[in-house]
Design a protein around this nucleic acid. Structure first.
Length: 421
DNA sequence: TCTGGGGTCCTAGGACCC
DNA sequence: TCTGGGGTCCTAGGACCC
């Protein structure tokens, strides 16, 4: 039996989510912006055709917006997360095995599908997902994960109508690799792309023709695996169960400049609380918390960056304990006189709740703050996020980011559910 | 005026031990 | 004062991903 991997990838995912509910967004070019309405992170096909690049800042496309040639949305992760899980549920219903790879992508194990039925199977999956969720999906199918990625890109680029492409012969493989620029191969980033081009390697095919010694010499084990996968040898298997996260962070740019210790403290304790919530939801505790604050590198004013990492005697996921460390740490790194633009909290050294080593020299971690955290989770789950927060987190008004045009939480918040009248 | 956020994996190098 | 080699663990930083 041959091994077959599929890669299902939602087209222009965030824009497609917005278009489910916003009829007016269906007929004109649309983009979705990053947090804080900073830059473009998703584009409709029409927006791509206009020449709008991924990652351009809002102010560079404001002309189009003023002239009403382009519509934009602030990002709405509650919506995208919910639509994503619907798409993934469909894939789980339709496919033998699924690995959710990102919010808009999943690898499929299609080895049990007979070779001659792969293409039709892909088309069927695509149609059903379109029908059930209204999200357009492209599917690439090939003998390795890396080649399924290549096939997917090829489907999007050259077979838009059907949206499915199978690499099922040596001839097809050669043709597709010839037409795949090296820098668009999964795992080849900017640095490696440049290096390869300097060595006259411009396509994926040329990469596979390099001698193995060259790969070993200039790339890590990751590059070697990619090399073999592109030649058709499967090195990456499907992983269906996702491990717990090994680090959790929460960082944000501020909506305006912040220069007081108090505002930074409000922001960082809010971020700390988000990290603690995420820790509890995956039943982990953290050994250390890092925080940083920084000015805006894009302006010409004096720049400042500082960070600190603090360890816990006993791993914790209590909001209060993490906040206390953060407040103490901030006092160490804060310097008056700068315009701060961004800050972040990161918890690392995560361990499962049930594997915590006690510290002989300290009493069992304060059970009270654990109980308070749990209670807050319950209340916030029932009445909506941030129903209860700690006073130290303040009112957010001085630092919270901009989200000028966020769509309603159509599918995850009772008040926002569309009504049919 | 206005430029995102959250991850993973790998490697090199230092500290430490025997 | 000189002097070896092998191993582990941890961390910082790089590269990449979506």
């Amino acid at each position: 039996m041959n091994k077959w991997f599929g890669l299902a990838d939602c087209n222009n995912f965030y824009v497609s989510c917005e278009r489910i509910f916003s009829l007016s967004a269906r007929d004109i070019p649309v983009v979705v912006l990053s947090n804080n309405d900073g830059c473009v992170i998703s584009r409709s096909q029409e927006a791509k055709d206009m020449g709008i690049e991924m990652g351009v800042p809002l102010h560079k496309i404001s002309d189009y917006i003023h002239k009403k040639q382009l519509e934009y949305f602030s990002s709405n992760y509650a919506l995208y997360g919910d639509i994503s899980s619907r798409v993934m549920n469909c894939l789980n219903d339709l496919c033998p095995a699924v690995e959710v790879y990102s919010i808009d992508e999943a690898f499929l194990d299609l080895s049990i599908i007979p070779d001659e039925e792969l293409y039709d199977f892909g088309v069927e999956v695509k149609h059903k997902i379109g029908k059930w969720t209204k999200i357009p999906v492209s599917i690439g199918i090939a003998p390795t994960k890396s080649l399924a990625k290549v096939a997917n890109r090829y489907a999007k680029k050259y077979h838009k109508i059907e949206g499915v492409f199978v690499i099922d012969s040596k001839e097809v493989l050669e043709k597709v690799l010839t037409e795949t620029p090296i820098e668009s191969v999964w795992g080849i980033g900017r640095k490696h792309g440049k290096f390869l081009k300097n060595h006259n390697v411009n396509t994926a095919l040329e990469f596979t023709k390099l001698p193995e010694n060259f790969i070993r010499k200039h790339f890590s084990i990751v590059g070697l695996r990619l090399y073999r996968e592109l030649k058709g040898e499967s090195c990456l298997s499907l992983t269906e169960v996702t491990d717990k996260k090994k680090a959790i962070q929460y960082t944000r740019s501020f909506g305006r400049y912040v220069n007081t210790l108090q505002d930074l403290e409000e922001a960082l304790t809010t971020f700390a609380s988000k990290c603690a919530e995420k820790l509890r939801s995956q039943q982990s505790c953290t050994n250390a918390v890092s925080i940083y604050i920084r000015t805006n590198p894009f302006n010409k004013k004096a720049q400042f960056y500082n960070s600190i990492t603090l360890n816990f005697d006993i791993p914790t996921n209590s909001t209060m304990e993490i906040q206390q460390k953060v407040i103490w740490g901030l006092k160490q790194i804060f310097v008056q006189g700068y315009d701060y633009k961004k800050a972040g909290v990161c918890v690392t050294g995560l361990v499962p709740n049930d594997a915590i080593q006690g510290n002989l020299f300290r009493q069992e971690a304060d059970g009270k703050s654990q109980k308070i955290s749990k209670l807050m989770d319950l209340v916030n789950a029932k009445f909506g996020k941030d129903t209860i927060t700690f006073a130290v987190q303040g009112s957010k008004s001085n630092w919270q980011g901009n989200a000028g045009k966020i769509s309603p939480r159509y599918t995850t918040f009772w008040k926002d559910i569309p009504k049919v009248e």
